[in-house]
């Protein structure tokens, strides 16, 4: 069961309208290493994890990713809200505008729709799941670093840096869970 709190995990603001930057950031909304992929990946894997603490960690991080997904949507929204259609005309974003106007829609930066093919879950192999999760956090961190390379919007960058740091923390926690699982395989429970 989930409940919704009417707030962002961290407040988001932007220096000004910037549809090009919105398009780059969109990949963290509906792209392969984006926040939606992260949330669905962890919340899918948790059912078959072997211990209470791995179920807890995937539940808690998966839930936080949904909050990050909302922050990303807010960034895209604020970068494009109220923009004159003329502003879209000279860029790829115009193709998205043609299909659905200014909707914030889960695609990658190039317009490819989100797909479950971005994630994996192995019900018999918690080690494989956690290694996938570690890789996912690394790739998401790398993506935020790419976005920070591309963005000159200082207000927005505060949000991007926060989200980047969360990837680092999640990577740390997944690493600890992986170590713990691997130690336990020498004891009563055998994972492979």
């Amino acid at each position: 069961m989930w409940i919704y709190e009417k707030r962002l995990q961290k407040q988001v603001s932007v220096d000004g309208k910037n549809p090009k930057l919105a398009e780059y950031i969109l990949t963290q909304f509906g792209g392969p290493d984006g926040e939606l992929s992260a949330a669905i990946r962890y919340l899918t894997q948790r059912y078959t994890m072997p211990t209470g603490y791995t179920k807890a960690l995937l539940t808690d991080i998966g839930t936080e990713e949904l909050a990050h997904w909302e922050m990303i949507a807010t960034m895209v929204y604020q970068l494009t809200d109220g923009l004159d259609p003329e502003a879209y005309k000279q860029m790829d974003m115009a193709k998205k505008y043609a299909q659905r106007g200014p909707a914030v829609f889960p695609t990658d930066s190039e317009g490819n729709p989100w797909t479950a093919a971005y994630i994996q879950a192995h019900g018999n192999d918690p080690v494989a799941n956690l290694q996938e999760d570690l890789a996912a956090e690394s790739k998401a961190r790398a993506t935020y670093e790419n976005l920070l390379d591309l963005s000159d919007d200082e207000k927005l960058n505060r949000g991007l840096r926060f989200l980047r740091e969360r990837e680092v923390v999640h990577f740390q926690r997944f690493g600890e869970a992986l170590n713990q699982i691997q130690e336990e395989k020498h004891q009563r429970r055998v994972f492979y």
Binding site: M1, I3, R46, Y47, T51, G52, Y53, K55, A56, T59, D60, T63
Partner: peptide
């Protein structure tokens, strides 16, 4: 819920989970 104080040692991780 995540925001319940819970017990020490941390019992949020206890099974059974809802499923």
């Amino acid at each position: 819920t995540q925001n319940s104080p819970g017990d020490f040692p941390w019992n949020w991780i206890d099974e059974p989970w809802p499923w």
